[in-house]
Every structure is written in C-alpha cells, then in structure tokens.
C-alpha cells in the first residue's frame, strides 16, 4: 500500500512487473506446448470470463460469495470480540476455558464444513458457520491478549477518579485493545474468504467456490482460474476495507511511514 503511494518510478516498476508476468502467462505455456486444460493462457481466461458473465451468471455468483464473506466476517468478528472481552474481564473463566479454546483454535476449521452440511443441509448456513468459526479465533485471541496487557497504571488512575468497572472497561480497556482488535480483524478478513470458499466447494450450487468444483468437473481450467482470481479480489477488497477503517479509527497512533 505504502509503495503504491511512493515515487512514480516505483509505481512504474510495479506495473511493469505485472505486465511482464501477464506476458509470461500468455506466451510461455503455448511455447512449451502445455495444453489449455492444464494451463489456460491469459486471453483464454479473459474469453472464458466474458462467457461466464454472459452464460454462467458470474455476477450473481460473485455477489453471493461477497455477501457471504462479509456477513460471515462481521458475525465472526462480533462473536470473537465479545468472547474476547468477556474472557478478558473474567480471569477465572479464561483459566478454565483456555485449554479448550487452544484445542479448538488448532483444529482445522474447514474440516467442519461437511459436518455442518450433515446438520444444516445444502443452504447458506453451513458456509456461514465455517466462516464465522474461522474468523472467530484470531479475533478472540487478539482481544483477550490485549485485555491481559492493559496498562495497570491507567486502570489505577481511573479507579482513583472513582470510575466503576464498566466505565473502566469502556474508557480504558476497550480503547487500549483497539490496535489488537484491528490486527485480529485484518487476519480475519483474509481468512473469511477461505471459510466461504470451502463452504461453497463442499456443498451448495452458488458462489465462486461452487464454480471451482463445477469447472473442475467440466475440465474447464479457465473457469477455475477465474473463480480463484475473483476470490482473491474479494479478499484483497475486504482486507483494504478493514485497514482503511483501522487507519481512521487509530489515527492517533504514531506511524513509522509518516516520518
């Protein structure tokens, strides 16, 4: 992000690199005799993309995935932050629950997708659940960590000013935790796309994840490529949306790139 705002020569170099990679993609596989169904060229993908928009409802699938990602991300974030703050306020609960949280955190969340389909059928719920689950933990862990490292002297200052527990939480602990919360949200934003993709691949007939399995079944490699690229774009958009909000909210922090 920073380099994009840098000198024009840097920008030119970045664009040049992109053009070079596209050129390699376009001309190298045919030159080596690699067939289309293994590696489709850039232009093959573009042709397939316009066909997908015209015939395959690419727009609908993209919007569906985007909405699932955003909803899953928001729900997972809210839940993760809420649990993080609650556990942070109760050292006892944290001690009792932390081994289980650690276990769940290590368990591969995407492996739950088939289970959710068994339980909830082929609808929107399984993919949302996978997304919520995968977004939940990094945010929970980051918030909990920040609650444990709040400056004790700030809390004492608030206590000397006769503030009660709830006021201290609102005025000291929550603002102190925001940098950590946003670090968790940025991780969650990239993970949300993974959750939705897996959910769509395992079950259902909408979304870019579905197009990947569908394209695979048809040996339509260009379709798989396009779906992956669009998923990446959604992930990048969500990440920059979160870090844009972060920059506004945490404007008071010293940043190295300002100097």
């Amino acid at each position: 992000m920073k380099s994009l705002q840098g000198k024009p020569t840097e920008l030119l170099a970045i664009l040049g690199m992109g053009v070079l990679m596209l050129a390699i993609w376009e001309f190298l596989p045919p030159a080596l005799g690699v067939p289309k169904y293994i590696i489709p060229t850039f232009s093959d993908c573009l042709n397939e993309l316009s066909r997908m928009f015209a015939r395959q409802d690419m727009l609908g699938h993209t919007v569906s995935t985007l909405i699932s990602t955003v909803i899953g991300f928001i729900l997972g974030s809210l839940l993760g932050a809420a649990c993080g703050y609650l556990l942070g306020m109760s050292p006892l609960a944290e001690k009792v629950l932390s081994p289980y949280i650690l276990g769940l955190q290590i368990a591969p969340k995407v492996a739950f997708a088939p289970l959710f389909i068994i339980w909830f059928g082929y609808g929107d719920i399984p993919k949302l659940l996978v997304t919520v689950l995968i977004v939940f933990f990094p945010i929970l862990v980051n918030v909990l960590q920040s609650m444990k490292t709040v400056d004790h002297d700030l809390v004492n200052l608030a206590r000397v000013y006769s503030m009660n527990r709830w006021t201290i939480f609102r005025k000291i602990e929550v603002p102190s935790s925001l940098p950590n919360l946003f670090a968790g949200l940025r991780i969650g934003a990239t993970l949300a796309v993974i959750g939705v993709t897996v959910g769509e691949m395992v079950g259902g007939n909408t979304g870019l994840g579905f197009l990947i399995t569908y394209g695979e079944g048809q040996a339509n490699t260009a379709m798989v490529f396009n779906a992956i690229i669009f998923l990446t774009i959604i992930g990048i958009a969500l990440y920059f949306a979160v870090s844009g909000v972060e920059k506004r909210v945490l404007h008071y922090l010293e940043r190295n790139d300002q100097h």
């Binding site: 200052l157 006769s162 603002p175 925001l178 008071y252």
Partner: peptide, 18 residues
C-alpha cells in the same frame, strides 16, 4: 478511592486515543 485525591506518576498516563 476518593475523588479529592490527585495522582501523578513518572509515566504521564495520558490516553493516546484522546
């Protein structure tokens, strides 16, 4: 704790978000 007591440490304890 009482509101009539002022308190100052080596750290300024200013809230960075305010």
């Amino acid at each position: 704790t009482r509101p009539e007591v002022g308190f100052m440490l080596q750290k300024d304890l200013l809230l960075p978000w305010r």
